[in-house]
Nucleic acid binder design. Structure first.
Lengths: 245, 245
DNA sequence: ACGCATTTGTTCGTATGTATT
DNA sequence: TAATACATACGAACAAATGCG
C-alpha cells in the first residue's frame, strides 16, 4: 500500500510517518517560512495516502505551530517575520496600555570562541566559534530588556551588527531569511536576580534592583539547539505573562 | 437531523455544539474529575451525530486539558488529584536533581470581606466575603514558596485550616472533591521584586533579596475566575520553567 | 493463559460546506 | 461566477490497548 513510505520506519501510524516526511521537507527548506506547502490533495497523492491521513498529520504540525492553516488559502510555514503582531516568543507585556512596539538598540555583535557554558548549551565542540549579540529593547526611551544572545558560528556566518541594525522586523525573521534557521520551540528558565552596576547602568535602574532573569534555549527542527540567550527584564512597568492549562 | 442540538445556537459547526454540550455536562457535575465520560459511541447516539463528530469535539477538549483520553479505557475528566506527578499548575523546578515533592505548611486560613483588589479579580460585589489562605512550600526544610491565596467565600464555605492540613494531595484536588470547583485554566503575571522584612523572615532569605512574584488568576469552566493568588518564589536553587512554541 | 468484549486509535472513502481569489 | 483549498460530517472497517471471565 505504501510507496514513498516504504523506506520509513513502519511500526508507527501512517499519519505519523506523513508528519515526519512533511517535517523533513520543512527542515530541508523545500518550503520556506511564510510560503504555502502543497495542498492536502497533492500531498495525499504524493505520499499515496488518503487526504484524511494528511489532514491529521497537518493538524498536529499546526498544533505545534510549525504550520498555520488558512481556510480557502492553503497551509503555510510558520514564520517569525511579517506577523503584524510582536515577537512571537516574547512574553513581556506592559502592565497598562497597549502592547506598543519595542525599539531595538544593538550594543555589540562579535565572533569569539564559545565560552564553556555556551558551548554546552549549543552542543559545540571546545574551540568552536559563536556569535554574541548584545542589545536593548526600549519602550519609548526607557530600556526594558537587556539581551545577551549566543549563536553557533557555523550557522550564522556573515551575521554583522550592520545586518542586525538595518533589518526591519524581528531578529528571528532575519535568521529565517538570511541564514535559513527557523526557530520553532524554546524553553525558558526564569529567576529573580539583583542588577549589577553594569546592568543597572544599561537598563537605567538602580544597582541591586530586582530584575527578571530569563534564560532561553531555542531549537529548530529536530529539537536542535541553535540559540542561547540570557535576558534581563525590568519588570517595574511590565510583566511576563504565561498561560497555564 | 439534529435533536438534542436543536435548541443550541445553530450557526456553529456540529462538533462545536457537541463540545459545548459536553462542557455543560462537566460544568454541571454530570461527570466528576477522575471519572470517565460515556464512550464516544454512546455520546454519538445520545446527540444523534456520528462518532467522528464526537471524536473531534473530544479531541479539542483533550487539547485544552479538560479531558484525558486513554486508549482501551475511556475518556476521563481531568483532575488535579491522583496525578502521581506534582501540582499541575506549578512551574517551579529545582535547578539540579529530581523534582522532589514539596512539603506544605499552612500559616493561616480566615474569612473576611474581600479587599478591593481581590474583589475585582474574583468579580465579587463590594462587601462579599473571601477566604484567605497563607502557606509555605518547602523543599526539605528550606522554604521556597510563600503563597497568599484568595477564594470566593460563596463557593468555599466550610474551608478550614483543619481541612487543608489533613487533606492528602494537591489543594486543587481538595477543591474538586470537597467544593466541586475544578480549575481548568490560569493566567500568571510574573515579576521580580525585593523581599520585605516579613517575607524574608518567612522564606529564610535576606530582606531585599530578589524574589519572583507570581500572580495567578485561576478559572473554572466558562473562564469564570475562582482563585487569585500571589506567590513569592525564592529562585536561589529553583527556577520557573516555561515552554514556548 | 487465553479469548472476548469494550473503548479509543487509525485509515479509508465520499459528499458537502465555506472562505479566498 | 468559477476554481481552489481547507473545514465539516457521515459511514465503515480494522488495529491496539485494556480488563474481565
Amino acid at each position: 500500500m505504501t510507496d514513498v513510505l516504504a523506506a520509513a520506519a513502519t511500526p508507527s501510524p501512517l499519519y505519523q510517518q506523513v508528519k515526519a516526511l512533511i517535517t523533513r521537507g520543512l527542515q530541508s527548506g523545500d518550503w520556506k517560512p511564510g510560503e504555502a506547502i502543497p495542498p492536502e490533495t497533492e500531498l495525499a497523492a504524493r505520499f499515496k495516502v488518503s487526504q484524511g491521513t494528511v489532514r491529521k498529520a497537518i493538524d498536529e504540525l499546526a498544533a505545534e505551530n510549525l504550520l498555520v492553516r488558512r481556510q480557502g488559502k492553503g497551509t503555510f510555514v510558520a514564520t517569525h517575520a511579517e506577523e503584524h503582531q510582536q515577537y512571537r516568543f516574547l512574553r513581556l507585556t506592559p502592565d497598562a496600555g497597549e502592547r506598543a512596539r519595542l525599539r531595538r538598540r544593538f550594543l555589540d555583535c562579535r565572533r569569539m570562541r564559545a565560552p564553556a557554558d555556551v558551548a554546552k548549551w549549543l552542543g559545540l565542540d571546545r574551540g568552536e566559534h559563536a556569535v554574541q549579540v548584545r542589545r536593548l529593547l526600549l519602550s519609548g526611551d526607557t530600556p526594558v530588556v537587556l539581551d545577551d544572545i549566543w549563536l553557533p558560528g557555523g550557522l550564522f556566518r556573515g551575521l554583522t551588527a550592520e545586518k542586525l541594525a538595518t533589518y526591519r522586523g524581528p531578529m528571528y525573521g532575519l535568521f529565517e531569511a538570511e541564514f535559513g534557521v527557523n526557530m520553532i520551540r524554546a524553553e525558558e528558565k526564569i529567576r529573580a536576580v539583583a542588577a549589577t552596576a553594569d546592568e543597572a547602568a544599561l537598563l537605567g535602574c538602580a544597582a541591586g534592583a530586582p530584575l527578571l532573569l530569563v534564560e532561553r534555549l531555542s531549537c529548530t527542527y529536530g529539537d536542535k539547539p541553535v540559540e542561547w540567550r540570557r535576558g534581563l527584564y525590568d519588570t517595574a512597568r511590565h510583566h511576563y505573562r504565561n498561560e497555564l492549562s
